[in-house]
Design a binder for these strands. Sequence first.
DNA 1: TTGATCGGAGATCATTATAGTCTCCGATTA
DNA 2: TAATCGGAGACTATAATGATCTCCGATCAA
Lengths: 157, 157
Amino acid sequence: MLKISKKTDYALMALQHIASVQTGDTTPGRVVNTKEIAEEYNIPLELLAKVLQALSKSGMIESHNGPKGGYLLARSAGKITIAQILESIEGPLGITDCSHEKEGEFCMQREHCNIRTPLLKVQDSIYQLLNNMTLQDMLGGTPLITIQSPTAEGAER
Amino acid sequence: MLKISKKTDYALMALQHIASVQTGDTTPGRVVNTKEIAEEYNIPLELLAKVLQALSKSGMIESHNGPKGGYLLARSAGKITIAQILESIEGPLGITDCSHEKEGEFCMQREHCNIRTPLLKVQDSIYQLLNNMTLQDMLGGTPLITIQSPTAEGAER
DNA sequence: TTGATCGGAGATCATTATAGTCTCCGATTA
DNA sequence: TAATCGGAGACTATAATGATCTCCGATCAA
């Protein structure tokens, strides 16, 4: 069903929260710790910790140890795309198994596979979609999801 | 990773095959049986059988029993969308758990959830994408994936 | 009219992915 | 120097997926 995982959900919520704290009027620039987010959104603390660690590893947020420690966005919300968040948690996006097939790896169907090429195009389109929407777009009630001329793009390839 | 299941892969391959047989020069209108497809694409026979049964149930193909039996497209390839195929096999498309939440069902995060609305919009866009591409588009090497003005659509809602 | 060939349907099992938990470590700072 | 934070690994439970097996009813041709 093309579902994204709970961990990704949690990542999106957490980033959204961090971003809104950081850009908010009340306490701009404040670091946010795992516990705060976990309690606010009813997320299992230790699972959320894993998620935030992954986001930190991929350079999306920066961590600060010790008391009064926590996380900050590593760059502005407008420069963090949904695709990047997704890939940080779930690995490279691929709608089919052979999306990231390495040399020498072939699925049993490969020889007569008649759907690989079209599926990869679908995948590209989805990727474009997710890569053109940023964390910034998710803040507030702003209208979002603008795709860079996907019709033209899709047709010419 | 937004991956589609193997069963869906099989469904796409099978439909592609049936469609190409039916519209092909050699034996147009010929029924295609499960075994033929399974052997051609190295798909486990009985699993493919399940898949084809599901497609038949959802009215995408029609079945013919008995010797010389098999399947035929129930309507033209241009009227079968990728979204329809996907939903026949995997159920309604939903990128997040709360996509199809019934009245009274709420996820633990719902109360303060800050990502539901934007995610539903992403989902809509993906759905549009899949619903504007047909089995016909997957045949031959035709360029494909044209989305109906998603930019305008996304902005106005 | 009967038997081989089809699809239809249910139960079952193995494997994998996901979700969640537990424990210990090192860094930081009041 | 002790409490508070993140970092990291192992671990368990549950659900989804992929695949297999068995039996049934419909059909058609010999």
